[in-house]
Design a protein around this nucleic acid. Structure first.
Length: 324
DNA sequence: TTTCATGT
C-alpha cells in the first residue's frame, strides 16, 4: 500500500515536471521565433507587444535581438509614414517602392555622440578612406524583378544619391550603400551641391542639439494640364526602369535639450535639378502637408503637429512653384 | 562632403 502510493507520487511528479519542462521549452522556442519574425514583419512588430504580454515564464531575451528591437523602436519613435515593404537596417529603416525601384522614405535617428566631429565642414579629411573601400551593391532582400542594379545607374547621367547619407553613419556606413537606399540624382548642382548642403545642415543641427530624426524620400510632382487635369512625367533609367524623382524631401525633428522643450520640426523640398550655388536653404522650406499629399505618406500618425512641435512654417511653399 | 569612369 505504502509503496504503491510512493510509486504513484513519483509517477505523477515526473509527469508534472515533464509537462512543465515541455511547456517551458515550447514557450521559449515560440518567443524566440516571434522575436525573429518581428525583425522582418511590421505587422508582427505591431502585434508583438500584445503577444509578449502573455508571459507564463520569464524567458531571457536574445540580447542581440532585443537590442535591435530597442533600436528600431528608437528610430521609429515618431511613427511610420507608410508601411509598404519595410526594410530594417542597423541604423536606419526604409520603406521600398517596388514599382519605382526607389524607396518611399528612409528614417534615421542621428545623435551627436555617434556622429563625431568630422561632419562640421564639407572638406573631407582622414575618414574618406573608409568610405572609398565601400562599394554600391544591389540589395538582395528585394525580389530580383523589383531590384535596382548597378548597371541601371551606369552611364545614366545620374548620380547614385544616398537617401540616408553615408556621412551620417560611421559604424554601419556600408549599409547605406545598398541600392535600396539610393536614388538617381542630378550630380552637379544638386547631389554634390544643394542636397549635400542640406545634409551638412542636418549634421550640424545634430551636433548642436544632440538628437535629430530625419525622414528622407522622393517626390514625383504632377504638372497642371491645359484641360484642368494633372499628369506626372519622370525619367526612368536602365533596363530595370529605376524612376528618377522630380523632387526630394527631408522632414527634420530636432529634439530640445531643455526639460520641457518641445521638439522642433521643419521640412524641405528640393527639385532634382541644377540649383544655383548661392541659394538659401530657407527658401526651400515646405509645409509638411504638401509632402504628405505628393508622396502619399502620413507623418506622426496624423497627430496634430502644432500640439507637439514647434515648427518653421513657410508662408508660401515652393513645391507648388515650377523650378527653372 | 558629394560623386563618376575604367578595368580585372
Amino acid at each position: 500500500m505504502n509503496s504503491r502510493w510512493q510509486a504513484l507520487i513519483v509517477v505523477l511528479g515526473t509527469a508534472v515536471t515533464c509537462f512543465l519542462a515541455g511547456a517551458y521549452f515550447q514557450h521559449d522556442h515560440a518567443t524566440r521565433q516571434l522575436q525573429k519574425l518581428v525583425q522582418h514583419d511590421p505587422y508582427a512588430y505591431y502585434v508583438s507587444s500584445k503577444i509578449f504580454k502573455f508571459q507564463f515564464f520569464k524567458i531571457p531575451q536574445d540580447k542581440a535581438l532585443s537590442a535591435q528591437r530597442v533600436r528600431l523602436e528608437d528610430i521609429m519613435k515618431y511613427g511610420y509614414p507608410g508601411l509598404d515593404d519595410i526594410h530594417l537596417y542597423s541604423d536606419f529603416v526604409l520603406s521600398y517602392d517596388r514599382r519605382n525601384r526607389v524607396a518611399h522614405w528612409v528614417c534615421e535617428h542621428l545623435r551627436a555622440d555617434a556622429l563625431g566631429s568630422a561632419a562640421i565642414t564639407d572638406r573631407g579629411r582622414g575618414r574618406v578612406r573608409s568610405r572609398s573601400r565601400i562599394s554600391y551593391r544591389p540589395d538582395l532582400s528585394v525580389p530580383s524583378n523589383f531590384r535596382a542594379a548597378l548597371a541601371d545607374y551606369r552611364n545614366s547621367g545620374f548620380d547614385r544619391g544616398h537617401l540616408a547619407a553615408a556621412g551620417n553613419h560611421r559604424t554601419h556606413c556600408d549599409e547605406t550603400f545598398y541600392l535600396t537606399n539610393i536614388a538617381p540624382q542630378i550630380g552637379r548642382g544638386f547631389n554634390r551641391a544643394a542636397w549635400n548642403k542640406l545634409e551638412i545642415y542636418v549634421r550640424n543641427l545634430t551636433l548642436r542639439y544632440g538628437s535629430v530624426y530625419v525622414f528622407t524620400g522622393p517626390i514625383y510632382k504632377p504638372k497642371a494640364r491645359s484641360n484642368g487635369n494633372w499628369s506626372i512625367e519622370y525619367e526612368m533609367i536602365g533596363s530595370n526602369m529605376v524612376a528618377v524623382p522630380t523632387h526630394f524631401f527631408k522632414v527634420l525633428i530636432v529634439e530640445s535639450k531643455l526639460p520641457q522643450g518641445k521638439p522642433y520640426m521643419e521640412a524641405y523640398v528640393l527639385p532634382n535639378a541644377r540649383i544655383p550655388d548661392n541659394i538659401n536653404l530657407r527658401d526651400y522650406l515646405c509645409d509638411i502637408r504638401e509632402i504628405e499629399h505628393y508622396a502619399g505618406l502620413q507623418f506622426f500618425n496624423g497627430l496634430r503637429r502644432s500640439r507637439i512641435f514647434g515648427s518653421n512654417f513657410p508662408r508660401s511653399s515652393q513645391v507648388f512653384q515650377n523650378f527653372g
